[in-house]
Write a protein that binds this DNA or RNA. Structure first.
Length: 452
RNA sequence: GUGAGUAUAGCUCAGUUGGUUAGAGCGCCGGAUUGUGAUUCCGGAGGUCGUCGGUUCAAGCCCGAUUAUUCACCCCA
């Protein structure tokens, strides 16, 4: 058969894995620095745990796992005959692949609530799966890197999460714009123009602003049943750039005032912190997910610095006051952000931001020239390894040309040549593959040189 | 789920209004050089033109279907 891999999935070459780990390691280091602890959850969850948490669209994109054994026996035959596939699903599949890391985390918190110290700060770096059609920067299997805090509504965490975004992208060398808004401000906006019942429609439309423009947003709002007078007013307010200007406009809305106050607190906590990137209040930031209740975040590569880059958001998050309640634990507030590692990778690749040093792992390769020197070279290899140097030996003493070619293909910085002369003198040939320079040195001298 | 584009050597791609034996660059293998890779020179291998069907004297090229893939919409990281 012809080998192939599934749509939207990828194999990774050693070079790619090394680069991906560079991103993961950088993110992890910052998470740990801010006091977050790692957890892991299974790739598969009870389908029931996942369904209904991401809206109707999300349910469609959930990967469902077919039951084992004779799954037809227990299938809901009525539903199947009536063509009601949605109703038939629970009888055919009791498991699904996780769609994000937040819902499994909420499940985890509820199940382990008696063993956790609150506020509980966790990070989690694992793959998730979505049956979405792939396109640029979008895959069916991809990693998310999440940090969340549950069990506190302190705004200090919003401030910390902003700093985490800032530090990670500073460390990776990507210049970003971190946008921050507050769902309460959007709620206040809906209140101020009298369309509380169309709150969702309004946020979905606003969320598309950078894609379809202000007129497009107005059009979308009209299509979604928001009266023209209200949409005009909203459009007007969306042009507001600062909290100071916004404040009087939302004065009549208690929720709106609270949202502004929260953002002011976050900004004041961050006073004196030396931000490497841009953190901006952006009233047009909405985020589609409707479980957010407070501050919301989104990160994009800075288009002023990289005008030709075409990539959507590379991170997002926010506060959700009641995520665990669907699993039976009420009044536990959480706030968290996520890094889209795959998109960060694509951005860094496009901008050529990976350090070349990260690609080199093997330091030296031994080349034995004949059968009699091979065991000698192998023992020398072990000594080099004992000194903590990454090393290997070409598996057979074949033609030097062939061995050199392999070393070159492997991108090894040094080779050590071992022939009968070298074995007799105890001085091995250390060759620098980049410069071509070659010196005869004792094993001790070689170890000393390679240890630098 | 909806729409558009693409499918030719291991990779990136040419291929004329349909007309002899389908090409290039890179890579791969061998040699120049039996103790030196990357550079140079010489030689070589490698294709059911995604798949199935149709039109035609003749199809890589035209038509239909199908699969894969890319991009966009919806939604999202």
């Amino acid at each position: 058969m012809k080998p192939s891999i599934l749509k939207g999935t990828r194999d990774f070459t050693p070079e790619q894995v090394i680069k991906r780990n560079y991103i993961f390691d950088t993110i992890k280091r910052v998470f740990i620095k801010y006091g977050f602890q790692p957890i892991e959850t299974p790739a598969m969850e009870n389908l029931e745990t996942l369904t209904g948490k991401y809206g109707e669209e999300g349910d469609k994109l959930l990967f469902k796992v077919l039951n084992n054994g004779n799954f037809l026996e227990k299938a809901d035959k009525n539903a199947i005959e009536n063509g009601d596939y949605k109703k038939a699903v629970p009888s055919l599949s009791k498991r699904g692949l996780r769609y994000d890391l937040t819902v499994p985390f909420a499940r985890f918190v509820v199940m382990n609530q008696h063993d956790l110290a609150f506020p509980f700060k966790r990070y989690q770096i694992q793959p998730v799966w979505r049956a979405d059609n792939p396109q640029k920067g979008r895959y069916q299997e991809f990693y998310q890197c999440d940090v969340d805090v549950v069990g506190s509504d302190s705004l200090v965490y919003e401030a910390e999460l902003s700093q985490i975004y800032d530090e990670v992208f500073a460390a990776l060398g990507v210049q970003v714009v971190i946008s921050i808004n507050n769902r309460k401000i959007l709620a206040g906006l809906a209140e101020a123009v009298g369309i509380e019942d169309h709150f969702m429609d309004m946020t979905i439309a606003i969320d598309k602003l950078d894609k379809i423009g202000l007129e497009g947003v107005q059009k979308e709002m009209l299509e979604r049943g928001i009266p023209r007078a209200a949409s005009d007013k909203i459009a007007q307010i969306l042009e507001v750039q600062t909290l100071e200007v916004l404040k009087p406009l939302l004065q009549d809305s208690k929720t709106g005032r609270k949202g502004i106050e929260e953002l002011e607190t976050v900004f004041s906590l961050l006073e004196g912190y030396n931000m490497h990137n841009t953190l901006v209040f952006d009233i047009t930031l909405a985020r589609g997910l409707n479980y957010y209740t407070g501050c919301i975040f989104e990160v994009k590569a800075n288009t002023k610095v990289y005008p030709n880059l075409k990539m959507g958001s590379i991170g997002g998050g926010g506060r959700y006051d009641d995520l665990t309640s669907v699993f039976g634990l009420n009044n536990v507030s959480g706030v968290g952000i996520s890094f889209g590692a795959e998109r960060v990778y694509d951005v860094m690749e496009e901008l050529n931001l990976f350090p070349t040093a990260a690609e080199q792992q093997l330091k030296v390769m031994f080349i034995a020239l004949d059968e009699s020197t091979f065991p000698y070279a192998f023992r020398a290899l072990n000594q080099v390894r004992s000194a903590g140097i990454n090393a290997e030996i070409y598996p057979e003493p074949s033609k030097m040309k062939k061995q050199m070619k392999y070393a070159n293909a492997r991108n090894v910085p040094f080779v050590i040549l071992v022939g009968t002369e070298e074995m007799a003198s105890g001085k091995l040939g250390l060759k620098n593959m980049a410069s071509g320079e070659q010196k005869n040195l004792t094993l001790e001298e070689i170890v000393g040189q390679l240890s630098n």
